[in-house]
């Protein structure tokens, strides 16, 4: 996550990035609260098998995790592109809520009266694409970061890679979905310049949770669950849920200060 596109900063001044809100539909409003519960339930359900055999357990959990994240972004989040999705998009609108509303209006116009199902169908493709991007770009980067932070270099490759993939799926899928491949937005994301929202808060939470997850590893408690990388993944899940919650509510619109 520390090395993303540096160049490509457009010379023209951009409007300041605004926090992202979930879609103003009833299903989005509802599912955005159900989603973290589903995630935690999935993880809790899988936890014994992850502890027993981290590689098999994490690999088996990866697919339902991706499915949950796809469902979440498709139902709740504005997709990138069409000059709509990204809060840092090119539209002249600067007011967050107002802009969002207008964009949704545009979308409805564009889609005509095709109805919700079609809209969701149209969002599945970018959602799947963001899964692919997360898997191919974010996961290897996170794995490299894990190794740099002290994960074993010569052994446990599958463990580390799966751990990286889990964090990537949690943290990166929603972000890729809303920001696409907008270089400027991503530079802001890396520089911690984006305003905190549900999506960005989830990323910060997952990363901080994973960081804290390393704390119990050295303790001499002789517990099964202390094995690599169970605590890191657990920390990421918990951190993600907390970060999402705080980012969507209390800390919404705040910025990280150095």
């Amino acid at each position: 996550m520390s090395t993303t596109v540096i160049g490509g900063a457009p010379p023209k001044p951009r409007p300041p990035p605004t926090p992202i809100s979930h879609l103003p539909t009833d299903s989005a409003r509802l599912y955005t609260h159900i989603h973290p519960l589903l995630l935690l339930s999935l993880y809790t359900y899988q936890f014994p098998s992850i502890v027993a055999d981290p590689v098999a357990g994490l690999a088996a959990t990866l697919v339902p995790l991706a499915a949950l994240q796809i469902a979440y972004v498709a139902v709740c989040l504005p997709p990138t592109g069409n000059g709509t999705g990204s809060g840092a998009g090119n539209g002249p609108a600067s007011g967050g809520a107002g802009g969002e509303k207008r964009k949704i209006g545009e979308k409805k116009k564009a889609n005509g009266s095709a109805g919700k199902s079609d809209g969701i169908g149209g969002r599945i493709i970018p959602a799947v694409l963001s899964v692919l991007l997360s898997l191919l770009v974010a996961a290897p980067l996170l794995t490299a970061a894990l190794v740099l932070f002290g994960a074993p270099i010569t052994t446990h490759h599958a463990h580390t890679l799966l751990c990286g993939a889990h964090i990537a799926f949690l943290a990166a899928i929603p972000l890729v979905y809303v920001h696409g491949v907008d270089g400027a937005a991503w530079r802001d994301a890396v520089a911690l310049l984006l305003p905190v929202d549900e999506v960005y808060g989830g990323l910060l939470g997952a990363v901080c949770g994973a960081w804290l997850g390393a704390v119990p590893i050295p303790l001499d408690w002789d517990r099964e669950w202390q094995k690599w990388p169970v605590t890191i993944v657990t920390g990421a899940y918990i951190g993600y849920v907390f970060g999402r919650l705080l980012g969507g509510t209390m800390l919404k619109g705040k910025k990280v200060m150095f």
């Binding site: 002290g150 911690l192 390393a214």
Partner: peptide
């Protein structure tokens, strides 16, 4: 495990420094 903890902290500093450099 102090040696590993120090590695962890130093890398954390490096990452934060990289993020800060982006700013």
């Amino acid at each position: 495990w102090e040696d590993e903890i120090l590695l962890y902290f130093l890398c954390t500093f490096g990452v934060v420094a990289a993020l800060s450099s982006f700013r």
